[in-house]
Amino acid sequence: MKPPPFRYVRPDSLEEALALLATHGDEAKVLAGGCSLVPMLNMRLARPEVLVDVNRVGGLAEVRADNGDVTTGAMLRQSAFERSPQLRGALPLTAACAPYIGHFVTRNRGTVGGSLAHADARGELPLVLLTLGGSVLAESRRGRRSIAAEDLFLYHFTSALEPDELLTDVRWPAAAPGWGYGFAEMAQRHGDYALAMAACALRRRDGVVAEVRLGLGAVADRPLLAGEAAGVLVGQSLDGAAGDEAVREAASLAAAAAQPFEDLHASVAYRRQLVSLLSEQVIRQGWLDADDRAGEGGP
């Protein structure tokens, strides 16, 4: 349980980090919070030749708000989503998922960019970024590009980042009036990998659902948007018997959209049942939350 040999480099600037990635390409691995990479090193599941530690690169953990978005630097620690009143207010869905990311101690170290670049299909932050329709900025010596969350997560542990690219910023659509949010997860123990999770962002106008995005996590090789399930909610009030019916139909479509796998912890059927249950929960949370926020003035 000790890391294999590698060369450790610790750039102080972004230019230096990008130069190292350009030189070493896929023989290099970026070390951010280390909460996933270091276990993989210790278990010899990863054997990079060069470890590029970006923890001392300046300017990678800043938070900016502009045009209805919040941009967080990739090296922002996950604990910031729980502790910063500004982030909790602007990004309620991200804040809601934060307590489920690993444990209190790992969130002190784990980073938002590291979690997204790691692209674990069971990751909370990938699911939330996808549900909100956010994006990331990737930088290399070749230039800078924006990658939408929908294009970022290719499959389990594989993102669309090129080996010479560094994820530098994460763009989150901020909470807006009329919108409500919900997050729910089932794991065997708090902080364990989820068996299933769901997230919802829902806009309520004139007493009905005007717009809704439903995301599913840990039930496919990447986080999924359940578009068909979300579709049946649009134009509906989710109160009363008709609302219950719509929510149940959406939940059952979400369960059908999931592509869960079976392992010793849970069967496919059980995971689908969880997707249905969690989807119902987050849709209702989103609906009620949107009502609570309505006082802030609708569009």
Binding site: P3, P39, R109
Partner: peptide, 13 residues
């Protein structure tokens, strides 16, 4: 000042 896992950090860090 922040609690961290020392097995997930390199001494060099």
């Amino acid at each position: 000042g922040a609690a961290v896992r020392s097995c997930l950090l390199l001494a060099a860090q």
